[in-house]
Write a protein that binds this DNA or RNA. Structure first.
Length: 523
DNA sequence: TTAGGGGTAGGT
DNA sequence: ACCTACCCCTAA
């Protein structure tokens, strides 16, 4: 079984069905991934589990994923799990749950950015694909977020006026303006009203003041919370919570799962999910509770979910679950949040990560050569005498995950020539259909040593897929101006802070990018 | 998280 | 071929 590393969330396509318009915003092409963040984990933070370790059933993975998405734990932990689990790409409800969590995460930080806007658009797209109607609260939230994103720049002061106009242009004239004409799902009457106000702000001082007087941030947050609550109400409980509830009701021992039956419609617990995700006061009524399991670990459940799921106790006309799967669920339930956090930091995974790093070079070569396993024997017998390849040889010999777990820093790093394919650079979007070979590399038969083959299972995952260089994106004048002003305001070196302060301007940038750009600008 | 070294893509 | 903006890596 091959692990599907990231589940893809569809790009927002209302534009297509509304007409033949282009995408409203130039979006990151590196963001098709189903994760809490808009990018895959940086290389080095994660690894994937090779299939000889975890030939996990796709359904089990889904249960775990849906359960973890609901937990009030750090996004990075959830993200890590989403990365390692073999999730189906067709699970629209899972995608929706993740998008909701993305929004919730921002809301709980008190921030509202264009990312929320985009998440809402994608949810709308998913609802459309499922034939669902759009919640009114979602339309209102979308409008409020769009307004706030725009007005925020206006508040920055007169020197930000240029940014403001840019934002108006981007967010309203293009994105929302076209949505109105396209009559897509997120459009409401409010839009036109708000659009009129924004237009007024654009052209007159009084209009400007009207907009500034509104607490758009709070409006956005409030409406987002309402929407999340409603979304929560509309959701079906998560399978694992349902199973836990059943066990609880029936007073089952944790290893006596076989008599628990599950209704088909129990799936993704987004209703419960939202309850854990709504920030602060909103979740008081539905605090997670801990149910002690027999081994002392605890199971997180939600009181309201339990109350609601309890209804079906008598309706046991559903199919019983197969025992092996049930015991896996049991394991998932017994694992508390902290257990799963430690799982993510498990030494095995660390070791795999090291192996991934070490193997990056050879994996890339395999990509180019694609030698079969049988051929590798012959190939191993050959000795590479190619000049430039000495480093590679040494590295291959050290690529034994089993006994070289010490530190990849002690190993020679592959040169960048090696780390980046000499023949072709693949963008994030290319990864699924990369060509199999590279002629320019065909004679360089510096080959895998036996030790390298000891970790060959890792190769199957083509771990380098996600370590490709980002597509170069030129800095816009808006970005440059914003950076200049920000450095003046906050000082050089506070890159993270600056990035967070202008998230919507520095889309797809990292703090390192800001630092590098400043270095260039001041050279 | 930041600073700095250094590789690379893409433009001239 | 050369330049440099952009990107990646890693020590501290």
């Amino acid at each position: 079984m091959r692990i599907q590393p990231w589940v893809q969330i569809p790009k927002y396509r209302s534009w297509e069905r509304a007409g033949n318009r282009p995408k409203p915003l130039q979006r990151s092409e590196s963001d098709p991934f189903l994760s809490l963040f808009s990018e895959p984990p940086s290389r080095g933070t994660l690894t994937r589990i090779p299939d000889n370790y975890a030939p996990m059933d796709i359904q089990i993975a889904r249960w775990i994923a849906e359960f973890m998405i609901l937990q009030p734990i750090d996004d990075s932990v959830v993200n890590a799990l989403l990365y390692v689990l073999p999730l189906s790409d067709n699970d629209l409800r899972l995608k929706k749950a993740i998008l909701l969590r993305r929004i919730s995460s921002e809301v709980s930080n008190g921030s509202v950015s264009e990312r929320v806007l985009e998440s809402l658009e994608r949810i709308e797209e998913l609802e459309y694909m499922e034939g669902n109607s759009i919640l009114e609260s979602m339309k209102e939230a979308y409008c409020a977020v769009a307004v706030d994103c725009t007005v925020r720049l206006l508040r920055e002061g007169p020197d930000k006026r240029a940014d403001y106009f840019d934002s108006v242009k981007r967010t309203w004239k293009v994105r929302i303006g076209e949505m109105i004409s396209g009559k897509t799902g997120l459009v409401s009457e409010q839009f036109k009203e708000a659009l009129a106000q924004i237009e007024a702000a654009k052209w007159s001082a009084t209009g400007c003041q009207n907009v500034l007087n509104k607490d758009t941030r709070n409006d956005a947050l409030r409406l987002l919370k309402i929407f999340l609550n409603e979304a929560r109400e509309a959701m079906i409980p998560s399978f694992l919570e349902f199973a836990a509830e059943k066990m609880n009701e029936m007073g089952l021992e944790t290893n006596d799962f076989s008599s628990v039956s599950i209704p088909d419609q129990v799936g993704l617990g987004q209703r419960a999910a939202s309850s854990t995700l709504i920030p602060e006061g909103d979740k008081n009524s539905e605090m997670p509770i801990n149910i002690p399991a027999e081994d002392g670990k605890k199971v997180m459940l939600h009181s309201s979910s339990i109350a609601r799921m309890g209804v079906d106790t008598a309706c046991n006309k559903y199919d019983c679950l197969p025992t092996p799967e049930v015991s896996k669920i049991q394991e998932a339930l017994k694992s508390s949040t902290s257990d799963l956090q430690t799982l993510v930091k498990d030494p095995l995974l660390d070791a795999l990560h090291i192996a991934e790093t070490v193997l990056s070079n050879t994996a890339r070569e395999n990509m180019n050569h694609k030698p079969s396993e049988e051929n590798q024997d012959k190939v191993d017998a050959a000795v590479s005498s190619h000049d430039n390849e000495g480093i590679v040889e040494v590295q291959a010999k050290n690529s034994n995950i089993g006994n070289e777990s010490s530190s990849n820093q002690n190993m020679p790093r592959p040169s960048l020539m090696e780390r980046n394919s000499t023949a072709h650079t693949y963008e994030w979007d290319d990864v699924q259909d990369r060509p199999e070979g590279s002629s320019s590399h065909s004679e360089k038969l510096h080959l895998p040593s036996p030790k390298k083959r000891a970790v060959s299972p890792l190769k199957k995952y083509e771990t380098m897929k996600f370590a490709r260089r980002r597509k170069t994106k030129r800095w816009s004048s808006l970005e440059e101006e914003t950076l200049r002003a920000a450095v003046e305001k906050y000082g050089r070196g506070n890159w993270k802070f600056i990035l967070n302060s202008y998230r919507d301007v520095f889309e797809e940038r990292t703090e390192v990018d800001l630092k590098d750009k400043w270095r260039n600008m001041t050279r």
